[in-house]
Simulated scan of single mutants.
Amino acid sequence: MIIDLSGKTALVTGSTAGIGFAIALGLAKAGAATVLNGRDEGRTDAAVAKLKGLAPQSDVRGVAGDVGTAEGCDAIVAALPAVDILVNNAGIFGPQDFFETPDAEWERFFAVNVMSGVRLSRAYLPGMREKGWGRVLFLSSESGLNIPADMIHYGVTKTADLALSRGLAKRMARTGVTVNAILPGPTLSDGVAEMLAGEVAKSGQPLETVAADFVKAHRSTSIIQRAATVEEVANLCVYVASPQASATTGAALRVDGGVVDTIA
């Protein structure tokens, strides 16, 4: 299969590193004019330079803005009034006991993980509908189905992303616009590497080994028994953003290594 996204413009939020950067790189290599996004200009510019180094022929630029705020989303839309592909990737996570998680933390997680997608989808979907073509992806998580006891606030936001993507897919019915959710499992992103840094230093083991041990201990239903790479997640996203995925909409597409123990 040859995926050609020439002539399409893609925005990937939270794409200065990790899964978001890998998705942006994949889209750029497929020919899309790709827009990276980070909270500050310095990190965004550095990510643009890195991506151009990896894909020299690509059309890449950056738009800085904090998608966790209405003002940040407005600034992004002002700088980039229309896109063909929107990847709502920006998100935050971290373990915290339910009884020690204050309202402010719930609100922060909801603002970044859910409202960013609400605001940007509301801004860009009408233009896609007018063109008769568009792709919106929400990066949910297997934690949206398998709510982790130590990250209930995070799991709730990822379940909300599933509901949002399904509802928007129905709202965009018969327009040529598809909306889908991607559900990664444990993935060797920069955030996970940071979370496991203490154990890596303590054990002296490679990150991949420590991550595999984490998966076996905390996601024991995993079939692959390791963390996925960011590229493995990005590959699915690039396909879902392509013309070839025109019959896939309203779906919750898992790239979780089999962590969710169901065949449906």
Score class of each variant (00 low, 15 high):
residue 2 I to K: 11
residue 10 A to R: 12
residue 11 L to D: 08
residue 17 A to S: 14
residue 18 G to V: 05
residue 21 F to W: 06
residue 23 I to D: 00
residue 29 K to I: 02
residue 31 G to A: 12
residue 32 A to C: 12
residue 33 A to H: 11
residue 33 A to T: 15
residue 34 T to I: 13
residue 38 G to H: 02
residue 39 R to I: 07
residue 40 D to K: 05
residue 41 E to R: 08
residue 42 G to P: 06
residue 49 A to C: 05
residue 50 K to T: 08
residue 57 Q to S: 13
residue 58 S to F: 03
residue 59 D to W: 02
residue 61 R to S: 12
residue 62 G to Y: 13
residue 64 A to G: 11
residue 70 A to I: 06
residue 71 E to S: 15
residue 72 G to I: 08
residue 75 A to I: 10
residue 77 V to F: 05
residue 82 A to I: 13
residue 84 D to N: 14
residue 88 N to F: 03
residue 90 A to P: 02
residue 92 I to M: 06
residue 94 G to N: 09
residue 97 D to N: 13
residue 98 F to W: 14
residue 105 E to L: 15
residue 108 R to M: 01
residue 109 F to C: 00
residue 112 V to H: 00
residue 113 N to V: 00
residue 114 V to R: 00
residue 116 S to T: 00
residue 117 G to N: 00
residue 119 R to A: 03
residue 120 L to I: 03
residue 126 P to T: 08
residue 132 G to H: 10
residue 142 E to H: 11
residue 143 S to L: 06
residue 144 G to I: 02
residue 145 L to T: 14
residue 149 A to V: 09
residue 152 I to Y: 03
residue 153 H to I: 01
residue 160 A to D: 00
residue 161 D to T: 04
residue 162 L to S: 05
residue 164 L to H: 01
residue 166 R to S: 06
residue 183 L to Y: 04
residue 187 T to L: 11
residue 189 S to Q: 01
residue 194 E to F: 07
residue 194 E to I: 13
residue 198 G to A: 07
residue 204 G to H: 14
residue 204 G to V: 15
residue 207 L to P: 06
residue 208 E to Y: 08
residue 211 A to S: 06
residue 215 V to T: 11
residue 215 V to P: 08
residue 216 K to A: 12
residue 221 T to I: 09
residue 222 S to T: 09
residue 225 Q to D: 10
residue 225 Q to F: 14
residue 228 A to M: 07
residue 228 A to K: 05
residue 233 V to L: 03
residue 236 L to I: 07
residue 239 Y to D: 07
residue 240 V to G: 14
residue 240 V to T: 13
residue 243 P to C: 09
residue 245 A to R: 14
residue 245 A to P: 10
residue 246 S to I: 11
residue 248 T to N: 15
residue 249 T to F: 05
residue 250 G to K: 05
residue 252 A to M: 07
residue 253 L to F: 07
residue 254 R to P: 13
residue 255 V to C: 15
residue 255 V to K: 09
residue 257 G to Y: 15
